[in-house]
Design a protein around this nucleic acid. Structure first.
Length: 283
DNA sequence: CTCCAGGTTCCGG
DNA sequence: CCGGAACATGGA
C-alpha cells in the first residue's frame, strides 16, 4: 500500500529527474534506492552476468542493455534497447527505465522492515549486518531457471562462465556505454540447438537437462508465466518436474524469479552452516 | 596430478 | 525412505 501511494505521489515522480550527463549528452534515470547495495546484490550469486564498468556495472535486464551505478542512496541508470546501437536511453523514457531497474532490483520491497523482523539471534543479527543492502531480485523466469540448471556442481566462477558462453553463442548482442553485452537466449532458441552445441558452452552433463527443459518450456508444456498464480508447493512441484531441476534449483527459481520470499534454497554451504550453528550434535 | 565445486537422478538395501 | 555413485569440466 505504501508503495503504490508513493509511486502515484506527484512529488515523488518529480523527484525522478532526468539529467543530462556531461559526456555524450547521455541521459540517466535517477532512482531512489534506500537500504540498497548494488555491488553486494550483483555479486551475491543471484545473477551471474553483470560486469564492472566505470563506476558501476553493465548487464542486461530482459532485452535491455543497462548501465547502472550507485551514488549513496541513488541509482543512476541508462538503457540501450535492442534496436539501438546508441548511448543513452534511446527509445526509453526515464520513467520506463526507472520502473525496469526498480522492479529488477526489487527496490519496492520493505527491506528495513524485513531485517527488523529477523529473530533476535546473534547468528542472524551478524548475518543481516554483513548482508546489509543485499536485496532479493526479480529476475526473468526462464533466464533464472536455465542459469540455475547450469549451476549444479559448479563454482560461481564457472556459472558465470557458462552464462557468458550461452549468451555469447546464442544471445543477441547489444551495446551500452560502448561495451558489448548479450541477452540470455530465450527458451525456443536453446530448444532449437543440439546437445552437442550446448556442450560447447562448458555445460557438461547439464547440456541434456537444459535442452530438454528448454524444449518443454518453449513448447508450452512448461509454461513458466502461467505458473505465477500457483501456491508455493504446487509451483515447486511443477519446477521439479523439469529435467535438471531438484529441490535446490526449484527454490532458487521460486525465490529469485517468482518472488516467493519464503523459499529457502539449501546448497552444500547453507547445509554446513545449518548443521554447525543450529543442528550441531549436543555434547 | 588429484581434488572438488551453489545438485540431480538412478539404484540397491 | 535413505545412503551412494555417476555425471563433465576447469581452476586451485
Amino acid at each position: 500500500l505504501e508503495h503504490s501511494l508513493e509511486i502515484r505521489n506527484p512529488n515523488f515522480v518529480a523527484f525522478l529527474v532526468i539529467v543530462f550527463g556531461e559526456q555524450n549528452m547521455m541521459r540517466f534515470a535517477e532512482i531512489p534506492a534506500p537500504d540498497f547495495d548494488l555491488e553486494k546484490t550483483l555479486s551475491s550469486g543471484q545473477v551471474f552476468h553483470w560486469e564492472k564498468a566505470d563506476a558501476g556495472f553493465v548487464g542486461v535486464i530482459g532485452d535491455h542493455a543497462i548501465y547502472v551505478e550507485q551514488q549513496g542512496e541513488l541509482l543512476r541508470a541508462s538503457v540501450a534497447s535492442a534496436s539501438s546501437r546508441c548511448f543513452g536511453n534511446h527509445g526509453h523514457d526515464a520513467h520506463a527505465t526507472m520502473q525496469l531497474v526498480r522492479n529488477y532490483f526489487a527496490l519496492d520491497h520493505p527491506l528495513a522492515e524485513i531485517c527488523a523482523s529477523l529473530p533476535d539471534d546473534p547468528m542472524m543479527q551478524a548475518a543481516s549486518e554483513s548482508c546489509r543492502g543485499l536485496r532479493i531480485m526479480r529476475q526473468p523466469k526462464w533466464e533464472c531457471l536455465a542459469t540455475f540448471i547450469c549451476s549444479s556442481m559448479k563454482q560461481v566462477a564457472h556459472i558465470r562462465q557458462i552464462s557468458g558462453a550461452l549468451r555469447e553463442r546464442f544471445g543477441t548482442r547489444l551495446q551500452v556505454r560502448g561495451q558489448d553485452v548479450r541477452t540470455f537466449p530465450p527458451a525456443d532458441c536453446l530448444a532449437a540447438a543440439t546437445e552437442k552445441e550446448l556442450r560447447k558452452c562448458a555445460l557438461g552433463y547439464r547440456a541434456g537437462n537444459l535442452l530438454k527443459t528448454a524444449q518443454l518450456v518453449s513448447s508450452g508444456a512448461g509454461d513458466l508465466e502461467s505458473w505465477i498464480p500457483l501456491p508455493d508447493n504446487e509451483l515447486c512441484a511443477r519446477l521439479c518436474s523439469l529435467p535438471g531441476v531438484g529441490a535446490k534449483v526449484a527454490n532458487c527459481v521460486m525465490l529469485f524469479a517468482y518472488e516467493r520470499l519464503r523459499a529457502f534454497p539449501i546448497d552444500v554451504w547453507i547445509e554446513r552452516v545449518l548443521r554447525q550453528h543450529y543442528f550441531a550434535p549436543r555434547v
